[in-house]
Design a protein around this nucleic acid. Structure first.
Length: 522
RNA sequence: GGGCCGCUAGCUCAAUUGGCAGAGCAGCUGACUCUUAAUCAGCCGGUUCCGGGUUCGAGUCCCGGGCGGCCCCCCA
């Protein structure tokens, strides 16, 4: 049976409802006394379960004075098992699923319209059979009992349709498997695949927990411009857009950093922002062109303070948003309980590739060393980029458990402060979980003259053909000249963090509507 | 942007060497008053992603295109 036929049949059922005076899309439920509040299916199941011990089938849940409790349940019809004289069907909401039971000889059975009772008993069963389909949103009231098999079941006394579905939901057993359909029609994915619903529930909890942590540590949540005259704070290609009234080109932000630092200069000692940023780059399992970034800045802190905070924050978030401290990725268990290893970048690279980048202060010898351990190199790459390649090729794959790498070469970090005892390195760390970079932080550079010089150095790299550079931002440099307190800054990719906390291998599994190509019109 | 793989009924999947395009679920009709992926009987449902080509004959082979997945590239 074709799609159009199915829709036509469902429209016919909808008309049948209308012909009987039942609105298939009522503004509010006609069922039950208003004072009886509708509860989630999970609340109903929990409430009733406490009142009907297992092994006491047939007994209904009763209240204090021994009166049977009338429950009110709503949800999407997921499964119908029609036995002729009785119909069992399952409904589901975001919290749970529940079995409902219609029985021909049940004395109180009614189908209810906004103005009247439309059908009773036997007629009610027929009306259900000829008008209700899988996927419809319905509501029912009734007592709850346990079947012989022990399943909590609502014995329907009143019933109504709240929203008729014109299309059939995905297959009841296999769900929706087609990855493309799952992303393009995420609502079907959420209807059919409960583990997907769980993942996004966890995502929401993670963000709530992060906010809660920062709020309770004295951080102020702020909002900074998404549309910016210059996209700074990171090395990435921006999206370009245009403002008509101002007659000028604007960029979608690629980082939060430069505006948040202005606020630290302005006197807010602890600020953070959780917001969408946009990078005009490729799309893959690790990259989506828009993603959610957390950045925080704490005056009078350095990168070791930030490291302590990150460790405490993420392990706290894991405890609050998950059931425990561990998550399984593939077959590997990841444990978020602190403390996490702290290794210098130099040691990590030495350990995994044998190259000590401190022994190669010049680009040429660094390039040779990198090439000699089997990494493809590009003539245009600077020393920083070469070290970065070693990191992602040789080190990252081994960083499964939460691990901090610290002290990066200055070439890679134009906004970070140099280490006092080694000016070739900066006070910076990155956090890796499940072989992916999740966070990045440093003691912020607050010397305006050096900042200017470092930005100019980046511009020279650009001229030399390296496209991954940060451009000088005069407005920001002016702000720095007014004096910024020493400051520890942090960036965490929220999507990556959620991947780490849910064991998802693809960023598309933690973004509700990932970007896909448009499909051709047919 | 490059390489490999995939796309068949609303959904999940079959189809031998190139030989009548199938099953399960969903749907429709009927039976069935504790079922639970209910069961039983019957029926309907196809632009095999799109466009060319080869062939007596193409889901299958060839060419071009679309979309997706994986791996590179870029990026976090």
């Amino acid at each position: 049976m074709g799609e159009q036929e199915i829709i036509s049949l469902r429209i016919a059922k909808l008309e049948r409802l209308r012909a009987r005076g039942l609105d298939p899309y009522p503004a509010r439920s006609p069922l039950g006394p208003r004072r009886r509040k509708r509860k989630s299916l999970n609340q109903i199941m929990t409430h009733a379960a406490a009142r009907i011990p297992e092994g006491t089938g047939e007994l209904v849940a009763r209240g204090l004075r021994g009166r049977a409790i009338t429950y009110r349940a709503a949800g999407r019809v997921r499964l119908i098992r029609d036995q002729g004289g009785a119909i069992f069907f399952d409904i589901g909401d975001s919290t749970d699923k529940m079995q409902l039971y219609l029985r021909k000889d049940w004395p109180n059975l009614r189908v209810v319209s906004p103005t009247a009772i439309v059908a009773k008993k036997e007629a009610a069963l027929d009306l259900f059979r000829t008008t209700v389909d899988l996927g419809d949103i319905i509501e029912a009231t009734g007592n709850v009992f346990r079947t012989r098999r022990g399943e909590l079941t609502l014995r329907v006394s009143q019933f109504t349709v709240l929203a008729k579905a014109l299309r059939a939901p995905p297959e009841k057993w296999h769900g929706l498997q087609d990855v493309e359909l799952r992303y393009r029609q995420r609502y079907l994915d959420l209807i059919a695949n409960p583990q997907v619903r769980d993942t996004f529930l966890t995502r929401s909890r993670v963000i709530t927990a992060v906010r809660h942590f920062l709020d309770s540590h004295g951080f102020l949540e702020v909002e900074t411009p998404v549309l910016q005259p210059a996209a700074g704070g990171a090395a990435a290609r921006p999206f370009v857009t245009y403002h008509n009234a101002l007659d000028r080109q604007l960029y979608l932000r690629i980082a939060l950093e430069l505006y948040l630092k202005r606020l630290v200069i302005g006197g807010y000692d602890r600020v953070y922002e959780i917001g969408r940023i946009f990078r005009n780059e490729g799309v893959s399992a690790k990259y989506n062109p828009e993603f959610t970034m957390l950045e925080s800045y704490q005056a009078y802190a350095d990168y070791t303070d930030v490291m302590d905070m990150v460790e405490e924050m993420i392990s706290t978030v894991a405890r609050e948003a998950l059931d425990g401290n561990t998550v399984t990725h593939d077959d590997t268990k990841i444990d978020f309980a602190p403390p996490w290893p702290r290794i210098t970048l130099r040691d990590a690279i030495k350990q995994h590739s044998g190259v000590d980048f401190e022994q190669h202060p010049e680009v040429e010898s660094m390039r040779e060393a990198v090439a000699s351990c089997g990494v493809a190199v590009d003539e245009k790459w600077g020393r920083g980029k070469l070290i970065d390649e070693l990191l992602s090729d040789k080190v990252e794959p081994n960083l499964i458990q939460p691990t901090f790498l610290l002290d990066y070469p200055v070439e890679l970090s134009p906004l970070a402060k140099r280490k006092p005892d080694n000016p070739r390195l900066v006070e910076r760390f990155e956090l890796f979980i499940a072989s992916r970079e999740v966070g990045n932080a440093y003691s912020e550079l607050n010397d305006p003259q050096e900042q200017r010089e470092r930005m100019l150095q980046q511009a020279r790299l650009l001229a030399a053909g390296d496209e991954e550079v940060e451009l000088a931002d005069e407005e920001f440099l002016t702000a720095l000249e007014y004096g910024m307190p020493p400051c520890g800054g942090l960036g965490i990719g929220i999507d990556r963090l959620v991947m780490a906390l849910t064991g998802q291998p693809s960023i598309r599994e933690v973004i509700l509507f990932p970007h896909l190509r448009e499909r051709e019109q047919r």
